[in-house]
Design a protein around this nucleic acid. Structure first.
Lengths: 249, 249
DNA sequence: AACGGGTGTTGCGTATGTTGCAACACCGCA
DNA sequence: TGCGGTGTTGCAACATACGCAACACCCGTT
């Protein structure tokens, strides 16, 4: 592992917390000012860091451009998108696509509801991992030891009374999801919002992504939303087939 | 400038184009495989790079998290947000906030329209710089030489027949915007969408951000949208006042 | 089974690049 | 004018990142 690069990259999370001047960066890195300066300059050349009028440094625009390109070039996303759009067309509800990576789950695509009430989420934003249907689907497929390890490390915020309270409950829930091949979130993140989701599988049968349909209580009840389950599963299976060239059954 | 860091960071745009394996990365960097491996490992440790099942590398999730935090910690954004929300409340239309940085303009906040027809844009996405109202406002405030330099370097895609066709036309438009203190985009990006925007100024009078209201033809005509101009300008001035503590007049 | 081409990985000596220092330049303030 | 606080530069000493070469591994082939 390269020391220089390691130090340079450590600057990024540091600046993510807010702008800082040269001295602060040097201190928090534990290096001499001149060293910090050279690292910052290099980061600056690549646009990852920006210098504002008051001389302080903050994260730069290239970071957004990179994140943007990264998400747009994911092949699952490209393959899945038309299916998601079709599902949105049929149901009118918000449709999400998410992937798991390094203990995080994040949305990589979203087709918005036709109804005026929409849920708050953003592409690239980490998902509420302990409650979201897509998160359950992705974690349920991890090998058992990793699943336990991740579950143990997580926080279990009580967004609502129906949120998953702790690791034990979460693991039980994951076992159920793994068994049945689909997942729900019934008011576990926001009181009035329900979701139904299904997994997308690669050629080897492993879950590579998960999709869900979300709708608020005021539009459809949880029971009504659950009637969409077969449709959601068919869509997920269709994506799996397109992605892997194999039938997921 | 640090060579090691420079090389490591050069990997990111390379991977933004799509996944690549070790050999490809080494080749395109012009270094030995072992060197590339060490750099990739360091990037991996920081989560900027992810290794997929087929061993190839692609950009990692931490990138999104960083971009996310960065945009959320911008102080202009925090100060402006309530004003944007209020404007959305009054008009019902989509409201955007954007900043300029290193030859790019990007959205840093957005409050969505109440109407079902919405325009396509995303926080963190670079703006169509030659036509968007917010882009004109931000570029119009640059010192003249820089403005000319940027205008000369840009592409001028003809999204619609009303798009800005070339640098000369763009500079003329910028002069007008600079003069009048507000800007529009009437169908220059998407045929059916119009925008009106106004600048947010810092204590020194320089433009630090720009905001706009957008609406499709089917909801309000361009003329009707223009009647909102005084309201938009008042909102922008209110943000300027909050941000700088000074009256922008 | 043995082979070959294609990967990714490791250990190591060398020289290159990085480090921290000390001195300087700059700015605002008293 | 002097003084703390910045950010910046040049340089010599050293640590570190470099590329090499050899190895390990996984395929499909003969």
């Amino acid at each position: 592992m390269s020391q220089t690069v390691d130090r340079a990259l450590s600057i990024l999370p540091l600046l993510a917390q807010g702008p800082a001047d040269l001295g602060q960066v040097a201190d928090r890195l534990g290096v001499h000012k001149s060293t910090a300066l050279r690292l910052l300059r290099t980061l600056h050349e690549h646009g990852l860091v920006h210098r504002q009028q008051d001389q302080r440094y903050r994260l730069g625009a290239r970071l957004f451009a990179l994140a943007q390109e990264a998400v747009e070039n994911l092949d699952i996303r490209e393959i899945a998108h038309p299916h998601l759009a079709a599902l949105n067309e049929q149901t009118g509800h918000t449709v999400h696509l998410a992937v798991y990576e390094e203990s995080e789950v994040l949305y990589i695509d979203k087709v918005e509801s036709r109804y005026p009430v929409r849920m708050y989420s953003r592409i690239g934003k980490p998902v509420a991992i302990t409650v979201a249907a897509v998160a359950k689907l992705l974690l349920a497929d991890l090998p058992e030891p990793e699943r336990r390890a991740v579950a143990a490390k997580l926080d279990y915020p009580m967004y609502t009374p129906r949120s998953t309270p702790n690791a034990a409950a979460f693991l039980t829930e994951l076992a159920t999801v793994r068994e049945q091949g689909w997942a729900t979130d019934l008011g576990g993140h926001e009181e009035s919002i329900n979701c139904v989701g299904a997994p997308v599988r690669g050629a080897d049968g492993r879950v590579v992504a998960a999709m869900s349909v979300s709708a608020p209580n005021v539009v459809v009840t949880a029971e009504e939303l659950l009637t969409l389950l077969p449709l959601v599963r068919r869509t997920a299976d269709a994506i799996s087939r397109d992605y892997s060239g194999k039938d997921p059954a």
